Amino acid sequence: MKSLLTLLIAACTATAFSQQINVPKNKEFEIKSTNKNAGPYKTDEEYIYAFKSLGKNAEGNSLFECKIVKVVIKDENSPGGVLLNTDSVRRTNFYSTAVLLPLAMLNQPFTVTVSPKGKVLGISDRAEYLKKRLGEWKIEQQYIDQTLGNADGDFASRLQSLFLELPDQKITVSSEWKSKNTDVPFKVTGSKGANMVINSNVTQKDGMVQDSKYLINTQTGLVESAMNTSKGAQIDYTGTIKLGNRLARPQTDSAWVNMAVKMSHWSESLKRGTVYDSLKVNQLLHNKNNERFANDPYFLLNRLNATQGLDGPNSHLLYYKLLVDIPNEVIKNSPSHLHNKLGEALSERGAAEAYAVSKYALKTSSFDDWIQHSFAQGFLEYSN
């Protein structure tokens, strides 16, 4: 009888699941999270978080130092289909405020507190730093408020998605339970090596079907991998999570990021309200620290935009001086600059230079506009 009892206890121990997050202090790891919606409201994102265990606090909660170390946001309306890739940060497209939060928080450590059951209880040092960073970039107040508002909910939900919140009761193979907040059902369906397989399936009243599959490490309680899908009339979503080792990553060009954000539409670094300020633009032009960006397309284009936006008696002279020297490739997607450069190149540099500009202008509306403005209107004037 004693031998049988021993076997039963051993069997239960073998199938029992670790009931808490239990990561050794100083252990480092990364979690890659992807989110893609192929439905009408398309999204395609990748976030990689680097974690370091700081041990547990007096209440028994796990503390982690966390950093966002890579972000990729794809966007079909952005050149090359990518809005942001922090590994190639100089290709960032600033037409959306969506890039502000990840750029501000990139490689910035913050502390995450996680309960033994996997619930994210707090994120410290994040809001204060984010507000400070946006202020340093002189982001317009309405966009600071927008970014901070998005961070309050979005940031926490992203981090919570990296952990599976477990029930209070002990679970073994075939255990079933429902999540406390969303009433979503979960079931342990088996094991795979040292990991436990947990599935979830639910059909909403509107017909949307949600499926989830988690592979949980039975020693640490961490999600080794996961896939979540949602299929419905307005959504075709797939999300994944993958646990991995810490990797060496390229150092971000923080000087370029600071320059680029300050010269973006969202910053008031060069403006007074919504209008370019001549004093601020003049300081930009004479700032020797910007000499490192002398061949940077983003800097050259936005410097040109700033001088074009000035309203002064001689501001147009500065604009045209920069315009004739800027590489045509830099302004290839700017019809107004191409239009202006055609005439300036013809008068200042000759027909060959104007012809070189025209090869870019032909691909936009600027060439026909320039012909109409420079020649057709003149013919009409002399014919009257």
Results as ranks from 00 to 15, higher is better:
Lys138Phe: 04
Lys138Ala: 11
Ile139Gly: 03
Ile139Glu: 10
Gln141Val: 09
Gln141Phe: 01
Gln142Arg: 14
Gln142Trp: 09
Asp145Leu: 04
Asp145Thr: 11
Gln146Asp: 09
Gln146Val: 11
Thr147Arg: 13
Thr147Pro: 05
Thr147Leu: 04
Thr147Ile: 06
Thr147Val: 06
Leu148Ala: 05
Leu148Trp: 12
Gly149Arg: 08
Asp152Gln: 13
Gly153Asp: 08
Gly153Glu: 09
Asp154Gly: 08
Asp154Leu: 05
Phe155His: 05
Ala156Tyr: 02
Ala156Pro: 00
Ala156Glu: 05
Ser157Trp: 14
Arg158Phe: 04
Arg158Ala: 03
Leu159Gln: 05
Gln160Trp: 03
Ser161Cys: 06
Leu162Asp: 09
Leu162Phe: 00
Phe163Glu: 08
Leu164Tyr: 04
Leu164Arg: 04
Leu164Gly: 07
Leu164Asp: 02
Glu165Asn: 07
Glu165Gln: 10
Glu165Leu: 11
Leu166Asn: 11
Leu166Pro: 02
Pro167Ile: 01
Pro167Gly: 02
Pro167Cys: 03
Pro167Trp: 05
Asp168Ile: 03
Gln169Thr: 05
Lys170Cys: 04
Lys170Ser: 09
Lys170Gly: 08
Ile171Lys: 00
Ile171Met: 02
Ile171Arg: 00
Thr172Pro: 07
Thr172Arg: 14
Val173His: 10
Val173Arg: 06
Val173Thr: 03
Glu176Asn: 09
Glu176Trp: 11
Glu176Cys: 14
Trp177Pro: 03
Trp177Gly: 07
Lys178Thr: 01
Lys178Glu: 04
Ser179Leu: 11
Lys180Leu: 11
Lys180Pro: 00
Asn181His: 10
Asn181Phe: 09
Thr182Val: 11
Thr182Ser: 11
Thr182Pro: 02
Asp183Gln: 13
Asp183Asn: 15
Val184His: 12
Val184Leu: 05
Pro185Phe: 07
Pro185Tyr: 08
Phe186Cys: 02
Phe186Arg: 00
Lys187Leu: 02
Lys187Ile: 01
Val188Phe: 06
Val188His: 13
Val188Tyr: 12
Thr189Ile: 14
Gly190Met: 04
Gly190Asp: 08
Ser191Asn: 15
Ser191Pro: 12
Ser191Met: 14
Ser191Val: 01
Lys192Phe: 13
Asn195Thr: 02
Asn195Glu: 09
Val197Thr: 13
Ile198Asp: 01
Asn199Asp: 15
Asn199Thr: 08
Asn199His: 13
Asn199Gln: 14
Ser200Pro: 01
Ser200Asn: 03
Ser200Met: 02
Ser200Arg: 03
Val202Ser: 10
Val202His: 13
Thr203Phe: 06
Gln204Arg: 08
Lys205Glu: 00
Gly207His: 06
Gly207Ile: 00
Met208Asn: 10
Met208Glu: 13
Met208Leu: 12
Met208Val: 07
Val209Pro: 02
Val209Gly: 02
Val209Tyr: 10
Gln210Thr: 09
Asp211Gln: 15
Asp211Phe: 15
Ser212Arg: 15
Ser212Ala: 14
Lys213Met: 01
Lys213Trp: 00
Leu215Cys: 09
Leu215Tyr: 11
Leu215Glu: 12
Leu215Ser: 14
Ile216Lys: 10
Ile216Thr: 01
Ile216Cys: 05
Asn217Gln: 07
Thr218Met: 12
Thr218Gln: 13
Thr220Cys: 04
Thr220Asn: 04
Gly221Ala: 07
Gly221Trp: 05
Gly221His: 06
Leu222Ile: 13
Glu224Asp: 14
